[in-house]
Design a binder for these strands. Structure first.
Lengths: 230, 230, 230, 230
DNA sequence: TATGAATGAGTATTCATTCAT
DNA sequence: TATGAATGAATACTCATTCAT
């Protein structure tokens, strides 16, 4: 029973993500959630006291691995460039394995009528951006990344590329391999902004560097396990 | 009279943009438009036969200068790099001069319940993206842009950076000069991906190259005129 | 059309009074009003922006003649005792002619969840009470009323008697002549508290003193006209 | 266990009174009771089979001392006037000691949607009124009370004054000593309606006659005991 | 041309009550 | 004995749209 309760609460969140993916935030109604969960609308309120709580829980779910990812990067002693590639790959694979969740990434502006949710979503995006920027700064300090670009600009390029490729990927109905595209693009960026002395402007094929990732022990695989338990 | 009718129609679109900016697509209701225009809800239907038409007209307004921009680039015989910078600067200035309109750029996912509008918005974004990609290809053919990066990837970087910086600019309440940031970032990108042999043109001060723009004849001044006629 | 609108708005208030009378404040729902008015629930919102507004308008209607009554008493140069009897008779006849409206007088405690309405209702009751108290004081100053009773106590007796008799009248389904009972009781009170020198303790039959009322020109008859136009 | 069960049942009633006092009958919901009792909503149904039963039990609680009071008056061989004063003082002190319970006295009209409860409440009020009326008649027969006033009118004055002063006391947030006010007013009434020949007993200082009350054996002390067992 | 009045379907949320555990 | 989960009907209110005037 207690287990069932957890499942129902989780189920509501997963259903909400599915709806946001298919119908947008506008389509996320209590009626739609209830109908997809096969319960009454009133039953939803046993698990969440209002719709905003569902929205907030959905954003929490969306950003659940963020702390884990940053902790992993630190604990694995990755270089800045490894860290950035790891982050970017993790997000892309997350989306590719669970395409619906990527819809949440673009809901920010749709939350304008739900200030709490909007603020939370803005914070999540900003947090991710700041983390990449921090890695860029570390990379510049460590001599891995060229210093004639502002950390903010490079972070904008990296995050912006990933964000926009994901947007196109969604618009094209997941019609190309997201992780491959994103990783190739970001790898190229990192290569382009590697310091001059180190044989610059040679843009390696992005796939080649995959071995810099902490393969099977990475948080992504943990997440996978959790995601498939539904 | 006839003139007033046209002005009212324009007014409805401008008001819609204002609402999308302030309340999101969810907040765009006939009542809200009517109330801000100081007319009855029924009166809206004199000018648009339904809400979807308003959305489509809003997207049309949002992308009104796209053809003009591409025509200008061609007619002014700009190089690919000049064209890209011109485009990027034009959009950024457009947003900076009329911040509310930038909200439309992020409405794509909010249009999921309005398939026609969504499709149109996707087409607008894809069209802009393809145009940049085309310029990149031309630049690569002309030897202005390095060929060891796929045109798509570079277009993703350019467009993605602009898009994401604009998102951050909105989230931070227009708290930094958008055009400056975007132009600096894109200029850096173009520099980083300039061919090795020619690679000494330093564009780190983004403003410096402004003279490559077709000054007063640019689309922005036209837009300005239109924007002030309301 | 404009006339119709007024009628509908009035109709909603009169219907609300009818519902409060029959089902209590708890039974006053938008659905019930709409159903009795033969229109949709949404149509109600063309005339009142929310339920609280309906409640406030109902209280306004309930207390509409209060100012008129006090003005009449002044302009007709009534003595305090005449004024009190006039007031008491006016209210009683108002209720007797339009029994449903008397329900509003007892709604005060039912408005606890509608603080605005409650406050307004408390103010109306207090205002009526204070007016009677003022008349008592004037009567005491003019030597018409005994001074060995506090004005507040006598006002409590007068208002409380009327209020309670009306409550009993309602509970007994209007099974006795309200005005007659109230007027007899209040007349007796005034007699009992008339100064000693003036032949005290003779409780006249209440009806006998009716001629002290400004017969047909009184506000009650004006009200009657209005009430019957629906 | 069994004791706890009884306490819980009492607790539900006391909580219901508290809610009726604070939120009105409209605010009395199973959820609110359960939440204030710190138990589940379903648990309420262990003690009462539906909400109406709770209302009926609350009215029972409200009128619990009525029989006791009438029995006391008889067994103590009080005169009619003593009896009336005793009654009035008992009710006032009951309310003053336990202000929340006074809310129930005004719930009559709020029970319109609960015919059973309404009927019961009307009966309680009528019963109290009839008892006072009976005492008035006895007083008139015994020559303690003037006979030129109808017993009903005097009962209306007495009960109405108490009722209305209590209403004002509630509206003014218990801002004056209820018993004092009520007793002064009723004493004055009894004095005013004392027979002419005997009419010199001055009762203007209401407190002075307190010794006519059956001090410690009065129902209030019993009530107090019960009230403190929760 | 513009609008007041209307509506049916839908919005989030609350209600008293039931029932398996 | 107590509760978590559920529900159907109701709550106030909003939506885009229509239509007679």
């Amino acid at each position: 029973m207690h287990n069932n309760f957890l499942k129902r609460k989780d189920g509501i969140i997963l259903t909400s993500i599915e709806i946001i993916d298919q119908l947008g935030v506008q389509g996320l109604t209590i009626r739609e959630i209830a109908s997809r969960q096969g319960i009454s609308e009133a039953a939803i309120y046993r698990h969440f006291s209002n719709k905003t709580e569902i929205l907030l829980a959905t954003i929490d779910f969306f950003s659940f691995y963020d702390t884990l990812l940053s902790r992993t990067i630190k604990s694995q002693n990755m270089t800045a460039r490894e860290g950035i590639r790891f982050l970017i790959q993790s997000y892309s694979q997350y989306y590719e394995n669970y395409p619906a969740i990527s819809a949440v990434a673009f809901a920010q502006e749709a939350f304008l009528l739900e200030p709490e949710a909007r603020q939370k979503m803005v914070a999540v995006v900003d947090n991710r951006f700041q983390f990449i920027k921090k890695l860029v700064i570390e990379g510049q300090n460590a001599g891995e990344i060229n210093t004639n670009i502002s950390s903010e600009s490079l972070a904008d390029m990296i995050f912006g590329s990933m964000h926009f490729i994901t947007l196109r990927w969604r618009a094209h109905n997941y019609g190309f391999p997201l992780t491959e595209h994103v990783l190739a693009t970001v790898s190229s960026l990192l290569e382009a902004y590697s310091p001059p002395q180190k044989g610059n402007r040679v843009v390696s094929t992005a796939q080649g560097n995959d071995d810099c990732l902490p393969a099977k022990t990475g948080p992504f695989f943990e997440k996978e396990e959790i995601l498939h338990t539904r």
